[in-house]
Every structure is written in C-alpha cells, then in structure tokens.
Amino acid sequence: MARNPYANTQMQNFWKESVEKEATARLMSFAKMRGQSRSKPRQLEVFRKKIEDNKPSDALLERLPPISGEPHFNRKKADFNEPLGLDRAMTLPVDAPEMRPVSPVVKNTLYDGFTKEGKGRYTYLQQRYDKIPEQKFAFPTCSSWDYGWRLSDVIKKEDIKKPRYGRNKIVEDTFYTRNGIMSDCNRVF
C-alpha cells in the first residue's frame, strides 16, 4: 500500500498555512473593495442608448393625461452593490469593539479592595457574570450564541419554571410546532 504524502506534520502545516493565507488575502481584498461600487457591464449602456433614442416626442407627451395615482407599494429599493450574506457583525466598522463598555459603577468596584477579601476583581467579575451576554455584547460573537440570542423575545422569563428532574425543554417549547405532532415524537414511552 502506498504511503500517504499528507500524513506527516510538515505537509499538514504547509496546507494549514496555505489555507490561512488564502483566507486572509480574501478578507483583505473584501475590506479594500467594500466601499467601492462594482463595475457596470456595457450592456446597461446599450440599453440606456436604445431607450433614449426611442423617446417619444414632446407633442405626444403633452397629449397624455397626467399621472395622478400613488404607488401601490412602499418598497425599499434594493442596493445590488451590497454583498449578500453579511450579518450584523460585518456591517460594523472594523475597529468596533465586540463588548459594550462597562458602566462606571461596576468599573469602580474593580479598583476597590483585594480579591482575597472578596472585593476588587472578584466583585467585578461577579457583577459582570450576573449580566446576560445580550446586555454585554452588541452581537453574538460565536456561533453557539445564535441558539439562545434574544430568547427573551420568544419566551417570557415567568414561563421558565424550575424543572422537576433538572432538565429544561426550552428547545422543544420554542422550536417544535404547537399542534403536538412533532413534540409527541420526541417523547420516550
């Protein structure tokens, strides 16, 4: 059996570095081209010339009745120069902080006393731990936060009760349908 040339560490590191270089180059190119408009194809210029050449005469336009109707829909015009698939994190400036600034009261506890006494850094971290990530961050910083992000919009805190056997069924209550079809399939008899 032939030996796999990609099995040694040196080759794996080479491929890893190549992939990282390519990803970095793509991100740099994207950031560089972000504010610039995309080049328009020549076909649009041809269509524009045809429309201008076939424009009706002013005498014909004067005989037409005036347009008095309001638009039926109040639609937002799409910007086709904007790239698709960008989430809120990509719309923020590059140097935007991930975490929201700490309030001055909480920040002052950081410099008040020592951790051994249960003050200072210890108290600061406890106060920061008491806040949920939605209050500390402007957007989810990792993909695992997407599942619980803005959960308070879907389910009220009063509806969450202490479970009888130590498990919550938040996913079942918020994800599955209410008619009982899907939720009954998950129960073990």
Rank of each mutant, 00 (worst) to 15 (best):
P41N: 09
R42S: 15
Q43P: 02
Q43D: 08
L44E: 13
E45F: 15
E45M: 11
V46N: 09
V46P: 06
F47D: 08
K49I: 09
I51R: 12
E52Q: 14
D53G: 14
D53H: 08
K55Q: 12
K55V: 05
P56T: 02
P56S: 02
P56V: 02
S57V: 04
D58V: 14
L60M: 02
L60T: 03
L61P: 12
L61V: 15
E62P: 04
E62R: 13
R63M: 15
R63L: 15
L64K: 02
L64T: 01
P65R: 05
P65Y: 01
P66T: 03
P66H: 01
I67F: 13
I67P: 03
G69D: 07
E70P: 08
P71F: 13
P71M: 08
F73I: 06
F73N: 03
N74I: 15
R75I: 14
K76Y: 04
K76Q: 02
K76T: 05
A78Y: 10
A78M: 10
A78D: 10
D79L: 02
D79Y: 01
D79C: 02
F80E: 03
F80V: 05
F80Y: 15
E82F: 13
E82H: 10
P83H: 00
L84E: 09
G85L: 05
L86E: 03
L86V: 04
D87E: 06
D87A: 08
D87W: 03
D87V: 06
D87M: 06
D87Y: 03
A89N: 13
A89C: 14
A89Y: 08
M90I: 06
L92N: 07
P93H: 05
P93D: 07
P93Y: 04
E98K: 09
M99N: 03
M99I: 09
R100Q: 05
P101S: 02
P101R: 00
P101C: 01
V102G: 00
V102D: 01
V102S: 01
S103G: 15
S103E: 09
P104Q: 04
P104M: 04
V105M: 07
V105D: 08
V106G: 03
N108K: 09
N108A: 14
T109Q: 09
T109L: 12
T109A: 11
T109G: 06
L110A: 01
L110T: 02
Y111P: 06
D112C: 01
D112W: 05
G113F: 00
G113C: 01
F114C: 05
F114G: 02
T115I: 06
